[in-house]
């Protein structure tokens, strides 16, 4: 789905150029769930914005959904395949009702009006917002707004959705809702790149990529990251509780048939 090789990106700051991405190589396969993490300002947001053509890399090669993103035409075309859900629920609704918001993205698709209305109805149902189709978006909760943003991606029949810290401004109920929705889509075949700073969300992903200062420090299996890479300690992360208990049990010589990452894993181990 994504093939990035030695990707670089820098911004102009007066006379100088500030490097933001310093040679990133990452491959994401179709149907995968990958979590991407790193401290604020490490370049995560810039990286994912290159994946759907919102930012143009200054060097390296990048293809997404089989399109070479060095060509400007492909940077528009890629948006049909890869969509982003942004962090701030308030700053991504363009219509004043959920219906209008979803319609906005469909306007340029050359659909008939009937097909468009049917599509809107379908995705509103998928995210559970049918009863709010005509509501003023200002009355939606943060969680509902994020689900609406997902509906907009679904309407475009996108193959991959990048979630950019979508839970960071939500309450626990909203967070649970959007995670469950993402998981459902993933199980139906959507490729998911889940950007987060929350340890429990990392622990629940099969693969994690860790960024720091424009580089990828780690990309691989989540168990290896938490149990043998030493990286979480080096970065000062408070690991997820199940992991810390697992580490303790491991140190005490408890024969673990599998190293726990989540509470459910721990349950199974015990």
């Amino acid at each position: 789905m994504i093939r990035a090789e030695q990707l670089t990106l820098s911004y102009r700051d007066g006379q100088r150029r500030l490097p933001v991405l310093k040679g990133i190589s990452i491959h994401i396969n179709r149907g995968e769930w990958v979590a991407l993490t790193g401290a604020n300002g490490c370049g995560k947001s810039s990286l994912i914005r290159t994946f759907n053509g919102l930012k143009i890399p200054t060097g390296g090669s990048l293809s997404a959904a089989g399109l070479d993103l060095r060509s400007p035409g492909n940077r528009t075309a890629v948006k049909q395949h890869i969509q982003l859900v942004f962090q701030n629920p308030e700053a991504q609704t363009i219509g004043s009702t959920p219906f209008e918001d979803i319609a906005f993205g469909l306007e340029n698709r050359g659909l008939s009006r009937e097909a468009m209305l049917a599509q809107i109805e379908k995705v509103l149902h998928q995210v559970g917002l049918t009863h709010k189709a005509e509501a003023d978006v200002a009355t939606l909760s943060g969680g509902e707004r994020q689900r609406l943003a997902v509906a907009c991606c679904l309407a475009l029949e996108t193959e991959m959705i990048i979630f950019d810290e979508v839970t960071s401004m939500l309450d626990p109920a909203g967070r649970r809702d959007i995670l469950e929705l993402a998981r459902k889509l993933w199980e139906q075949g959507t490729t998911v790149l889940w950007v987060t700073q929350r340890m429990e969300e990392l622990a629940e992903s099969p693969r994690v990529a860790v960024m720091s200062q424009g580089k990828i420090l780690y990309d691989g299996d989540t168990r290896t990251l938490f149990y043998s890479s030493g990286l979480p300690d080096a970065l000062g992360w408070p690991s997820a509780p199940a992991v810390r208990i697992g580490q303790l049990l491991q140190a005490k010589g408890w024969p673990l048939h599998s190293l726990p990452l989540t509470e459910k894993d721990l349950e199974a181990v015990l």
Binding site: Q80, I94, A103, G105
Partner: peptide, 26 residues
């Protein structure tokens, strides 16, 4: 800041003023 984020969202949805469009509202 809001304007900037909204502009990104508009672009991200594949808005293209040169293309023919299907209006949702008639």
């Amino acid at each position: 800041g809001m304007g900037d984020e909204l502009a990104t969202a508009v672009e991200s949805r594949g808005y293209d003023p040169t293309k023919e469009r299907t209006p949702a509202y008639l």
